[in-house]
């Protein structure tokens, strides 16, 4: 019974990890005004598996939240930034918020 209980606990933890969503931040250079970065946000949201995308002109970054269980394609994300007319730099994976 005790073993079964521990198995259930471990199984639920594994399940939680498997369905957790990933969040990434991409550093982007070349962004200017609000109107100019609208296209960037549209491009990012259209990517498969992307649940939400936010842009920060202050921090020169875009924050991308993936749908649960979907792994990000870094190359696709960088290409979306290039297709919007800007320059992507580093990509940082943010641990899923508790």
């Amino acid at each position: 019974m005790k073993v079964l209980r521990w198995c259930l606990v471990i199984a639920s933890m594994v399940y939680q990890v498997a369905i957790s969503a990933e969040t990434l931040e991409v550093t982007i250079h070349g962004m200017t005004c609000a109107f100019c970065v609208d296209g960037l946000q549209r491009n990012l949201v259209k990517l498969p598996g992307v649940e939400r995308a936010d842009v920060s002109l202050k921090h020169k970054k875009a924050r991308i939240r993936m749908k649960p269980g979907v792994s990000p394609d870094i190359a696709d994300i960088k290409q979306a930034v290039i297709d919007a007319g800007f320059t992507p730099l580093g990509v940082t994976v943010i641990p899923d918020a508790q």
Binding site: A34, V37, Q41, S56, K58, H59
Partner: peptide, 18 residues
């Protein structure tokens, strides 16, 4: 020249006056 805002918000795309 961007009159306002002097500093952009942390996240999100707001409006500005030039």
């Amino acid at each position: 020249y961007r009159l306002t805002p002097a500093e952009y918000p942390d996240w999100g795309i707001g409006a500005e006056w030039d």
